[in-house]
């Protein structure tokens, strides 16, 4: 469990994080989202003791991370997959990290195996593709068998097989009772991987809720209706529904229940070939939830 309590971080005049309080619970994958400049990275840097909080703080399983004797056993972090010396082999990189925390040497072989890098472990990290570096970064995060995993954009550069693997791994780690914190801008991937979301904007908490509730709560329910009757749209509008025509002839209906659409269609003697609820995608919901917190919005 990672608890953030009243965290504030200022850089001179700029407020990067502004009184943020939230808790990342174990046993689930929590998506940590926010537009650029929202304060996600700063929050993670403070959690890892890389930067000092101006006020408030972060506790990892009740402990202050910076004072831990064997910190990699508490939090495993992937901040930047490129942060590996290009001339050092993957195995040497992991061995040095393991030695700094007095972790047993066998952990190096175990994590290399878990991320599928065993065969290239002796190669210089500079020869790795971004996807391989991500795997190496994930291996480093797993070294201490930590209760908390803090992963910043871990799937950038992974190929489709790699993305599916990473998704499975994160679900598995959460299933083992760990706190998995996943920061990413890839909304479609987040929708498939996360159970819970913490969304921040301009350094403040926007929402802390389950993925399902976030998708339901913010999106207007819409029905996709496909029918052969040209009069149906007018009849629906007459019943108080909002109807939009789609280019392929289908109708997007909101403001009425599905059963009402069915009744009106029956009255109009229209044959319905499709009637399905449409949920907004995480991307849509995220954009509307954070619209006021976007720092670098382009002209629309």
């Amino acid at each position: 469990m990672l608890e953030i309590q009243g965290l504030t971080k200022r850089y001179g005049e700029t407020v990067a994080v502004d009184g943020l309080t939230c808790t990342f619970e174990p046993g689930r994958v929590t998506g940590f989202l926010g537009p650029n400049g929202a304060g996600k990275t700063t929050t993670m840097l403070v959690a890892l003791g890389l930067q000092r909080a101006t006020a408030g703080g972060v506790r990892a399983n009740g402990l202050d991370f910076a004072g831990c004797r064997s910190p990699m056993r508490e939090i495993g972090a992937l901040l930047d997959a490129q942060a590996v010396h290009p001339n050092r082999s993957a195995r040497a990189h992991l061995s040095a990290l393991a030695a700094s925390n007095r972790l047993p040497r066998r952990r190096v072989a175990e994590v290399l195996d878990r991320v599928g890098l065993t065969e290239v472990a002796g190669r210089r990290a500079g020869t790795f593709s971004l996807g391989m570096k991500q795997r190496l970064g994930i291996a480093a995060a797993l070294l201490g068998d930590p209760g908390i995993l803090l992963l910043d954009e871990p799937i950038n550069g992974l190929d489709p097989t790699g993305i599916a693997w990473a998704r499975g791994l994160m679900r598995e780690l959460a299933g083992e009772g760990r706190t998995v914190i996943l920061s990413s801008h890839l909304m479609s991937e987040m929708e498939l991987t996360a159970d819970h979301l913490v969304v921040i904007g301009r350094g403040r908490l926007i929402t802390d809720t389950s993925l399902a509730a976030f998708l339901d709560g913010a999106a207007p329910a819409e029905l996709l209706v496909r029918a052969d009757a040209p009069g149906l749209a007018a009849a629906l509008r007459a019943a108080g529904a909002t109807v939009r025509d789609r280019a392929d002839g289908a109708l997007l209906v909101s403001g009425v229940e599905a059963v009402t659409v069915g009744r009106i269609a029956l009255a109009e003697r229209a044959v319905i070939s499709e009637l399905s609820p449409r949920r907004g995608s995480l991307e849509d919901v995220f954009m509307s939830a954070t619209a006021s917190a976007v720092e670098f919005g382009g002209a629309r």
Binding site: L45, L48, G49, L50, F65, A66, G67, C68, P71, M72, I75, A77, L79, D80, A83, V84, H85, L97, S100, N101, A140, L143
Partner: peptide
Amino acid sequence: TTETIRSSLAAMPRRSRL
């Protein structure tokens, strides 16, 4: 200067020891 300092400190936050 060739140290990837963030990765090292994320693994070992006790800086004086490092």
